[in-house]
Design a protein around this nucleic acid. Structure first.
Lengths: 203, 203, 203, 203
DNA sequence: GATGAATGAGTCTTCATTCAT
DNA sequence: AATGAATGAAGACTCATTCAT
């Protein structure tokens, strides 16, 4: 049989990854059997095992590929030299997340939940996850710095806690979208706008 | 072995639940073997199985008991007739969560992550989870109503989106605490305070 | 607690045996759990085990007691000095079997089937069964001898094969009654009468 | 391991069935462990489970395959347009049963007893068994009809009861062969011949 | 005597992975 | 390169029996 080109290999790998995501979305990481993924991919066991060393390898790839893709998607928004105000930034990140995670037959937000759970017991995954979120926090902190420079926040505003709060909103958005449903970037934005609208004692 | 009193049975059940929580915290829901829990509980297989029909039953109980306990813990805070302003409310809820979830040998926040993941594939659990969070959202919306009555928010403030945002902050707090670490109720509070401090165009 | 009289003990034993028969009838020998019998008898585990050494002992007792009871029931019919002709004898034996085996909540004919199956793997039971059927065959052979003496059969008639055929009819009656249903002593009698009515070449 | 042909699969299935029959013959349906069958078949657990869903499935197959095979074996004898007289028919059926059931390392007559017992608690098996015996009875009744047409029996002879009696003889033959031993088709034939030889009042 | 909670060896079944063809 | 049959270790659960109270 003809040798596969590098390109074909990558496509095949993605095909398996997609099958994995679909299965994981449906049944979780552990309850999904290799046979499920094999059947969903429409390949043979041997074929799948020639692309991934074992189940753990495939799980890692499914999770990290997802994270890397999201990081790449969010980069232009987060690295924006003059980021829009928090509320708008949050909404556009949420919309980017939504666009990136909504796939045919699965939703990467749901996969993210699986990844968080799995990271509790898998140190390698935990490290990857921390690196991803540390970078995310760093980018958010950068936005805060630029907001301060632009006069949107006072000089005493600390980057780290605010970045944490912003990340919390996005993470909490993801949990609600996956577990409860009924949430959209617009609603999140509205909620945060209402929160900020809290009456303050005049100076 | 005399007939066990209802009280003794409950204590034994809790003993098994604690063993389960410890094991789940350590190794996740699926990778934890019944034997792990049995050994951790210091009982025999038969004894454990006389309190829980099967592994799934124990998992359900571990997850729902945890949710119910938290709901009960938060009730006085959330049903407060004159709730403190958002920032303080968030901090005190986060502190209550912290106090409730930090256990000997495990952390129920980590268990919550496992529950979210599991709820993706278990409809019964998903329903329980939705009921829990719907109630939570309802209580938060109640706080918003009372804040509006107290003049803290304008009349046009909508309860639902704001409740969603507040829940997102708490959920995101939980994820960060479990997955990244380095977060405390105080830091969350500070972050939200900074967020609210955003300069606004004067009216 | 007061000491039980011999009589009470026997009654209690029979109570357990009845529970056993009911359970065995419902679910077979092996699929019936001791707990089933214990619950059906309305006793405690300890109580049952004070009457029967273990499950095998109870099974043996259930099976042999049933056989002994039937042997005793059939004795007057089989030891009759001037037995009625074969067809009538068969019908009255079948009727006696019917009367003996039809119980409240179970049917000892069905238990007999379980016993035959079990005797394939339990040498002790097999021996008991062979003794029972050997005695049965002996009694039937005795009837044949008396029929010959009474001129009902020719002198060349052999006892053993005829006894075997008669026993086969009764055993086959039992199987059909238990497995297919729709059989009664009267139908069996009619069938054998028709069989005997076969036209013979005149001498 | 290339793809197995349908033929190879059937052979493999039969190999497992044979192992099952041997084990069941030796130790009964319930006391036989899957590991016994697996070892007897010389396969791995997984291999056996790829041919039979579970133990119950294998038991069903062992029992029904046996019945189907017997039905097929007896068909030419039972559907014979001019059946030999009852005594000869019985003998030839018994001989066919003997030839069909006597296998290498087991005896399907003994398995039949296990099947009757099991059918008491398994509705699916009970239905299969009833269908099998109903067909058998129908074929025997057909023989009676043909005997009547041939003048061997009077016009008033009823098919059903006679068929029942004939079936009883064959079933009783099976029980005796399996439980007591010492019976052969020839002895059964002799017994029935003696039974029919009963002196009758001349017309 | 009676109870019924506890034990733990024993079974069925699954599923990740391999490798002969 | 590709296949998919075979492996077998691992894990959930049951149930006969005991014995402390």
């Amino acid at each position: 049989m003809a040798k596969l080109s590098e390109e074909q290999k990558l496509a095949r790998r993605l095909q398996i990854l997609n099958a994995g995501w679909r299965c994981f979305d449906r049944n979780g990481l552990h309850a999904t059997r290799m046979d499920d993924i094999i059947a969903e991919a429409g390949l043979s066991a041997g074929a799948v095992y020639s692309y991934f060393k074992n189940k753990d390898d495939l799980v890692q790839a499914a999770l990290t590929t997802s994270m890397q893709g999201l990081a790449q998607t969010l980069r232009p928004i987060l690295d924006n030299e003059s980021p829009p105000p928090p509320v708008e930034l949050l909404e556009s990140i949420a919309e980017a997340i939504e666009a990136f995670t909504k796939r045919d037959g699965f939703d990467l937000k749901r996969i993210a939940l699986l990844g968080w759970a799995e990271s509790q017991r898998d140190p390698k995954l935990k490290a990857a996850m921390q690196a991803f979120y540390d970078a995310f926090l760093g980018q958010l902190a950068g936005c805060v710095t630029r907001w301060k420079a632009a006069g949107l926040f006072g000089a005493s505003t600390e980057e780290a806690p605010l970045a944490r709060a912003l990340l919390a909103l996005l993470l909490g958005y993801t949990v609600q979208a996956a577990v409860i449903g009924g949430l959209s970037p617009g609603i999140l934005r509205a909620g945060v706008e209402f929160l900020i609208s809290q009456h303050r004692a005049s100076p």
